[in-house]
Design a protein around this nucleic acid. Structure first.
Lengths: 116, 116
DNA sequence: CGTTTACATCGACGTCCGTCGATGTCTGAC
DNA sequence: GTCAGACATCGACGGACGTCGATGTAAACG
C-alpha cells in the first residue's frame, strides 16, 4: 500500500436504501422513464375528469394503437394507472399515490435514509 | 358509425406535457430507474459529508469496478451527480436540484400542466 | 526511471425494451 | 346472427442497456 496513509473514505455509515428497497421502487421508475408513457400520464392527469379513454390517447400520439395499449398496460402493471372498462370503452385514471410516492422518494431527507 | 352518438371522449383540453418536455425529463428518470444507480445515489446522499469516493462505492456492490464506473458516468451525464477529482481519488456528490426537480415533476399539480 | 493504485474507457456479449403488423376478444347496433 | 368498432394480445424485429474482462490513463511513491 503505497498510497497515503490517511483514509480516502468516509464510512458511509448513514442508513441508505437496501438492495431490496431499490428493487421494489425501480419498476415504478422504469414505467415512468419513457417519453410516451410520461406523456400518457400527463395527458390523463391533465384531463378535466381525471381520466381518459384509450380512443383519445391513441389520437394524441403517432404510435400504433398496439403500442399505446402496451404502454398503458405497463403503466397499469406498475400501479400508476387505474383501469375501468365501461361498455366498449376503457378509461384510465392516474393513481395519485404512485406519483406522490415517487415525489417523496426524491425529497432529500427520504433518500438520505428516512424510509419512503 | 354504429357506436353511440354521445362522445366517449373528454376533450383533454388541459395543458399537458409537450413531447419536447417529455424528452427532456426522461434521461433524468432513466438514469434513476436502475437499482444499482438508485442505491449509488442513496449511498452518496446518506454519506455524512454528502459525497463519497469511488473506492467506497465499489466495495458496497457485487458489480465490477467497470460497471460501477459506468453507472457513475450515467448519473453524472444525467446531472444527478457532481464529480470532483482530488489526487488519486474521485468523489461524487448528489446534486439536490436534480432530485428535487423529479420530486416537483411528480407533484400532481405539476403533472397536470403547471411547468416544472 | 519503474511500480502500484484509482479510476475510466473499450469491445463484446446477452438480455430487455419499444415498436410494428396481424390477429383475437368483447361489446353494442342492426 | 351478423357486422363493425374498441381494445388487448401475439410474434417478430431492431436497437438500447447492464455487465463483464481487458486495457488505458493518470497520480503518487520509491
Amino acid at each position: 500500500m503505497s498510497q497515503p496513509s490517511f483514509a480516502c473514505c468516509t464510512p458511509l455509515t448513514g442508513t441508505s436504501m437496501t438492495p431490496e428497497q431499490a428493487e421494489q421502487v425501480v419498476p415504478l421508475l422504469k414505467a415512468l422513464a419513457d417519453p410516451v408513457r410520461l406523456r400518457l400520464v400527463s395527458l390523463i392527469a391533465s384531463s378535466p375528469t381525471g381520466e381518459a379513454c384509450v380512443c383519445d390517447l391513441n389520437e394524441a400520439f403517432d404510435q400504433t394503437q398496439a403500442t399505446i395499449s402496451h404502454h398503458l398496460k405497463v403503466l397499469h402493471s406498475a400501479g400508476v394507472l387505474d383501469r375501468d372498462k365501461r361498455g366498449v370503452w376503457v378509461y384510465y385514471a392516474v393513481k395519485p399515490e404512485a406519483l406522490s410516492s415517487v415525489a417523496n422518494l426524491f425529497s432529500i431527507a427520504a433518500l438520505a435514509g428516512v424510509s419512503a
